[in-house]
Computed example of a mutant assay.
Amino acid sequence: MRLRAALLTLTAAASAAALAAPTEAPAAPSQSQQVFTRSLLDDPGTSAGIKRLLTKKIGIVDPRSGFLDVTGDGRQDALVLVTTNGAAGTVALYVFSTHGQPAGGSDTKLKVLFRLQSLYRATLRINGTALSVLEPVWAAGDDLCCPAKLRERDYRFDAKALTFRRTADHVVPFTR
């Protein structure tokens, strides 16, 4: 009985210490994260689900979002990822661009040219103006970390339509 009481006391003390321990505060969003969060919330094309994630702070504009010319016009475009802090990982991808607008004009502003808003644990590969979005495809017995396969959807920029068009959709083996 003494051993049991001692274990209960030790468990209670450990729990109290864990609650009292200072937690590391999350980093404040960068200026670009704040700008793109506001842009997504103001954009009528952003889905209600993504807006809910951003307003409730369940999801964030991923700090890995960045600038790269994916439209081939020589100007930087913004690739914006929305991620959750949970198992869902990357849940949305947006491409903001000034493509088709006069360079340096007073009315030039980033506009959403492309959006994928219902992703799950997505990863992105970029090759010039081609984007590849990969998502897990689990089979019975797969662990969350390690699906047997990935669904890869490839997109290429179509300058006439001012958007990205799907060029391929296939399943590839998952490799670490």
Rank of each mutant, 00 (worst) to 15 (best):
R153N: 13
P136Y: 01
L79D: 00
H170V: 15
G128S: 11
F96S: 11
V133C: 03
P102S: 06
I126L: 15
A21C: 05
V112Q: 10
V172L: 13
A13N: 04
V80C: 05
V133G: 03
A20Q: 13
Q33C: 05
R156L: 11
G105C: 02
L79T: 14
G86C: 01
F114K: 12
A140E: 14
L53G: 03
L7S: 07
P147F: 04
G128H: 10
L54C: 07
Q76I: 06
A148E: 12
L119M: 10
L54Q: 07
R52C: 00
N127W: 01
R176M: 14
R151Y: 10
D77F: 09
A21I: 00
A88L: 10
A18V: 06
G86I: 01
A92R: 05
T55Y: 05
A130C: 05
R151L: 15
H99E: 13
C145A: 15
P173Q: 13
L110A: 13
T123V: 03
T167D: 09
R38K: 15
R52E: 14
L93G: 08
R156V: 15
A48L: 10
I60A: 09
A148I: 00
A139V: 04
F114Q: 09
A140T: 06
G100R: 12
G100M: 11
L8F: 11
R52G: 05
A5C: 05
A148R: 15
V61K: 03
T123A: 13
A159M: 02
E152L: 09
D62T: 10
A25T: 13
A78V: 06
K160I: 01
R151S: 12
P44C: 02
K111Q: 15
C145P: 03
H99P: 01
G100I: 14
T83V: 09
A130M: 12
D62I: 10
Y120Q: 12
H99M: 03
S47Q: 02
E135D: 00
R2D: 12
V61W: 07
G49L: 02
F157M: 07
R115W: 02
E152F: 01
Y120H: 14
A17E: 12
L144G: 02
L10N: 01
D154C: 01
E24H: 09
T123S: 15
R52F: 00
F67Q: 11
R75I: 01
S32P: 00
T175P: 00
A87I: 08
A18W: 14
S30E: 06
T55I: 08
G59A: 06
S132M: 05
S65C: 06
L81R: 12
D73R: 07
E24D: 04
L19M: 14
A6H: 09
A5Q: 13
D73W: 09
H99A: 15
V112C: 12
N85A: 07
D69N: 12
T46S: 07
G128T: 08
V133D: 05
A140N: 08
V91E: 06
D69K: 08
A21S: 14
S118R: 14
S118P: 00
T46I: 04
S47V: 01
R38I: 01
R166V: 08
A92M: 05
I50S: 03
A28N: 01
